[in-house]
Amino acid sequence: MGEQILKSTRRAYGEALVELGERNERIVVLDADLSKSTYTNLFAKKFPNRFFNMGISECKMISCAAGLATTGKIPFASSFAVFAAGRAWEMVRLSVGYTNLNVKIAASHAGISVGEDGPTHHCAEDIALMRVIPNMTVLVPADATETKKAVFASAEWQGPVYIRLGRPDIPIIFDDSYDFQIGKAYVLKEGKDVSILACGLMVWQALQALELLEKEGIEAELVNVSTIKPLDEETILRSLSKTRCAVSAEEHNIIGGLGSAVAELITEKLPIPLERVGVKDRFAESGPWKELLKKYGLTPEDIKQAALRAIERKEKGGLK
């Protein structure tokens, strides 16, 4: 794979906000005492009068952002995923979703790669929580480049957007020529044997899984599903009708996230074998993030094994 440049998606978010702030006066940013972790402090430093620290009160922050949106601002509200999507869920539902206001919620420290802080601060439930809210768009960028483009696209998008960000420094996959659009899934590598549908840092894991599968003579197709909602059914179904079996890979509970969204789609439109890689409906624990990914089944090897199972089920011609 060669030398990788590493950057967290949360840092990319903070840097993107500064650029956005420079070119659009309507951008305002809210945080709940985590601006050093979400990197909204970069925006705060540059545009102090358009940055509002709410203190430790995520519920107020979300409804306040909605109020700001009614005055024509484009608020980006940030906290950890477990607080923004979890604690303030009902504010997101009513003040943002039901009103359909132009609020962007950018939540960092999603998944279990938060690491040592442990399950109280992990969040493997936010995709489920957010995608069930009508009017909500849900984005899970795979790297720093996609994050930046997702932030810019969100600012142009009229209506609520949830952007899922991570804590760890991860490889940059895309260069600046990458063309991100909300609602579009991207085939990163074509293959014919199995489709791997991944989001977030699992895209990087899946890229490594492709190499492992190649050694076994298997040509897997990799699709980056960075928009979980609205799901790009066309791109996904095109891939699945070619490969006839799939693996979903996400740093999220296998209940309610990308795997569920794909399962919902194929059950109705193209019933084929699906294997879900994700956190298997349990809380994780404290530890270094890479070791957590290993222990909780989110490695390239896990994706490879899931792909082999999916292919086996396809070849046996039935659901096992």
Partner: peptide
């Protein structure tokens, strides 16, 4: 809380 946001705006 929304009124607070409006007043801020």
């Amino acid at each position: 809380a929304a009124a607070f946001g409006m007043a801020l705006g």
